[in-house]
Design a protein around this nucleic acid. Sequence first.
DNA 1: CGACGGATGGGCT
DNA 2: GCCCATCCGTCGG
Length: 201
Amino acid sequence: MSGTRPGPDDLAALLAGPVERVAPLLLGAVVSHAGVSIRLTEVEAYGGADDAGSHAHRGPTRRNATMFGPAGRLYVYLSYGLHVCANVVTGPEGSPGAVLLRAGEVVAGADEARSRRRTGVARDLARGPGRLGQALGLRLDLDGTDLLAPSTVTLQPGELVTSVERGPRVGLRGDAERPWRFWIADEPTVSAYRKAPPLGC
DNA sequence: CGACGGATGGGCT
DNA sequence: GCCCATCCGTCGG
């Protein structure tokens, strides 16, 4: 009982659980890199072999290796050849799980974030996983960064968020659909939900 | 505004 | 080759 403020040890304990329990607990947490800090307002949970929507669905590969590692690592991947997206790995080593950082509010370094983004609209600086990665200046070589040790990327737990809403994940269809998207209610920075395209048969 | 499609490159059937 | 855990500019109502 050394204090009321969450520290690194609490973060390790927080990330130890099953990914669908951890994900909503990361809402309100603050991610920082290269002069920009973002308070998370929207996240999604991704599991292992049983989750058809997860990169880890078909077992370990070079790209998704970080998802199979210990909790607290940053899993960074390239989306659509253009966008750098980031996840926080959860659960025990060997059982893949990660929380995709979908959107947030820039709480520090707004000028820096604006210089990296095309838009100047504050609300849109990190409204979407690709935008969030761009605002933070994330790069693929940051994949595997240990957030539980001193590093250029940091994650600090926020205060407990009371009004959490949940719904289906974005951009997936069919068997991949799960209500594993979580966001803070009434937050303008939550990314716009786009329905999955219909199957053309 | 909502809908639509092009950009763009790595991963994997 | 085809499929994306997306973004943004453009076009029509």
